[in-house]
Amino acid sequence: MKKYFFVLLLMGLAQWSFAQKGTGWEELDAYHTVMAQTFHPAEDGNLKPLMERSGELADKAKTLKAAEIPAKYQKEGVKSTIKLLAKESKAIDKFVKTKPSDADLTKAITALHERFHQVMEECMH
């Protein structure tokens, strides 16, 4: 149990460090900025930023997917997870345009946020 807690603590600290300092990977940091500015308001029930910026989120993901992965992040799973992130970011942009319920949109951005954290975790390992 202690070991599991310690691993979670280290992952949390690393993600906090990335958020504070950036990763040094410009495209990933740009995506993270838009993700934070759309997801965190959604956590509080404010979906307006997501509805207004879903296209930007998809564009940043597309740019990230096309970018060269810095050497320190060329790890197993990173490239394939970024492809999924780009696909799902594009899908959420299309989903926003269908005017879904707030609950469905919140569920979608939460899933996308979890995918983003998967990318970050793979970069850290």
Rank of each mutant, 00 (worst) to 15 (best):
F116W: 10
T23R: 02
P41A: 12
Q20V: 11
V96Q: 01
R115S: 14
T33R: 10
Q15D: 07
A19T: 07
K107A: 15
P49G: 03
M51W: 13
A111P: 04
H117E: 14
L84K: 12
K97D: 06
K60P: 00
A66E: 15
L64E: 08
G77F: 13
L50W: 07
M1P: 08
G55K: 12
V78P: 04
L8F: 08
A42L: 01
L9N: 08
E43W: 02
M1R: 10
E43A: 10
R53C: 05
A86T: 02
K79C: 07
K2C: 02
K97G: 08
E68H: 03
Q118A: 14
H40M: 12
S80A: 13
H40Q: 11
A67K: 03
E43N: 03
D29N: 12
P100A: 13
A86D: 11
A111L: 15
G24V: 12
K90M: 11
K90N: 13
K72G: 06
V7M: 02
A36S: 13
L28Q: 01
Q118K: 07
A111Q: 12
T63N: 07
H113N: 15
M1L: 06
Y31R: 05
E121A: 13
T23Q: 07
D93G: 05
M120F: 00
K21F: 15
K2S: 09
F95I: 03
L8Y: 07
E122L: 15
M124D: 14
H40P: 01
K60L: 00
L84H: 02
K72V: 12
T38E: 02
M120H: 06
E43D: 12
H125F: 10
G22P: 06
K97T: 11
M124L: 15
K90S: 14
Q37D: 13
